[in-house]
């Protein structure tokens, strides 16, 4: 039943090198240490630490999605769709918090 002829064309060509994976990992670890450092030793800057922590988390998430999850080398539609999904979710957040902030 399974048709074999489409195998060659069906996988994407790009193979990420071990070096690139390792470089990505180094970057992620540095970001992690940075966010822990800011949080533990910058405790008096409360709101700023929360904002930076979330900002750094988002950078890390982007790095994971872009390099480990291969989005950088995937067709554009994957990047478009994930952007739409995350925007949709952000609107959910905004509309719900709007209710709580204006009560």
């Amino acid at each position: 039943m399974k048709n074999q002829h489409s195998i060659e064309e069906s996988h994407s060509e790009h193979i990420t090198s071990y070096r690139e994976h390792f470089g990505t990992w180094v970057g992620l670890i540095l970001l992690t240490l940075m966010t822990v450092f800011i949080s533990v030793f910058g405790a008096d800057l409360r709101t700023i630490t929360v904002a930076t922590a979330l900002f750094i988390a988002s950078v890390k998430a982007l790095v994971v999605a872009y390099y480990f999850m291969h989005l950088k080398y995937d067709p554009r539609i994957y990047r478009v769709l994930i952007t739409i999904v995350m925007s949709l979710f952000t609107v959910f957040l905004i509309m719900v918090i709007l209710d709580y902030l204006t009560r």
């Binding site: 822990v36 949080s39 533990v40 405790a43 630490t49 929360v50 922590a53 988390a57 999605a65 291969h70």
Partner: peptide, 26 residues
């Protein structure tokens, strides 16, 4: 394999947010 890898990265991705939200709000 690629799909399992994607799923595994997602697990990582969620943790990337859980970690600061619970541990780092000092």
């Amino acid at each position: 394999l690629e799909n399992s890898g994607l799923y595994w990265h997602l697990v990582d991705l969620i943790w990337i947010y859980l970690f600061p939200l619970f541990y780092l709000i000092h």
